[in-house]
């Protein structure tokens, strides 16, 4: 038998990351979709950076930032007594960066696909930007929200390079499923096989579920 703890840790990391990402990505995607500020392309590029960057590069810079012997990490360590390197909270923060584009981009393209007159109509009906977002925009981009949530979740589950760099392999803290596979591979290929199979089935089921639900949405409620 294999140790299930890495799998639970992966699930926990993905859930926490996805939840926080949703709160973070919604205002960010809204701003990117509707702001007339010209500098937003720079922000857009930064958001998408983790998609093209090797995770180890991201991990390296985060390690630098979190390290207690340098600026930001030192500040956290000395004044707030927070250590992010080789800890679960550190992994969560790293995952937020790592999976950010997978949440922001679907929501952003959801906003962009809506006719601008929907938002404008809501405003001329006397509704605030917040009411419009909650009552008009979000219900009409449900498929995009779902895609963002699931992609971020699945992407975080499969995270390896960043964890390797800043999380290490501490059981119960930072030893997630992908780390366990790497570890087992050296001594116990059978365990690695089992972990891999579980991850494969899990990822496939999640994606299948999303496509099923999206298919249902687009049939039941086709957008104009």
């Amino acid at each position: 038998m294999i140790d299930l703890q890495p799998l639970w840790l992966s699930l926990r990391l993905s859930l926490v990351t996805t939840g926080l990402l949703l709160l973070l990505a919604l205002p960010l995607a809204y701003w990117l979709a509707y702001s007339r500020y010209r500098g937003k392309v720079i922000v857009e590029a930064i958001v998408s950076l983790p998609m093209v960057l090797p995770p180890t590069v991201l991990g390296f810079y985060l390690l630098l930032a979190f390290s207690p012997s340098h600026g930001f990490g030192k500040f956290l360590d000395q004044y707030l007594d927070i250590r992010l390197v080789f800890t679960f909270p550190g992994l969560v923060i790293a995952s937020l960066f790592y999976s950010l584009p997978f949440m922001v981009n679907p929501i952003l393209s959801g906003f962009k696909s809506l006719s601008p007159s929907l938002k404008e109509a809501s405003h001329t009906l006397g509704k605030s930007a917040f009411t419009t977002l909650i009552k008009i925009l979000l219900p009409n981009i449900r498929p995009s929200l779902l895609t963002g949530i699931v992609l971020s979740f699945a992407h975080t589950i499969g995270e390896f390079g960043v964890v390797l760099m800043i999380g290490g392999n501490i059981p119960g803290q930072t030893r997630v499923a992908s780390m366990a596979i790497y570890d087992e591979m050296q001594f116990n290929p059978r365990g690695a096989n089992l972990y891999s199979l579980i991850l494969l089935i899990l990822s496939f089921s999640i994606l299948l579920l999303v496509y099923l639900i999206n298919h249902h949405f687009s049939k039941a409620n086709p957008l104009p």
Partner: peptide, 20 residues
Amino acid sequence: WPARKRSVGFVFQDFALFPH
């Protein structure tokens, strides 16, 4: 004044009905 404060009814060319 922002749009929401103005006492205006606007019928858009594409109607802009809320699909949901």
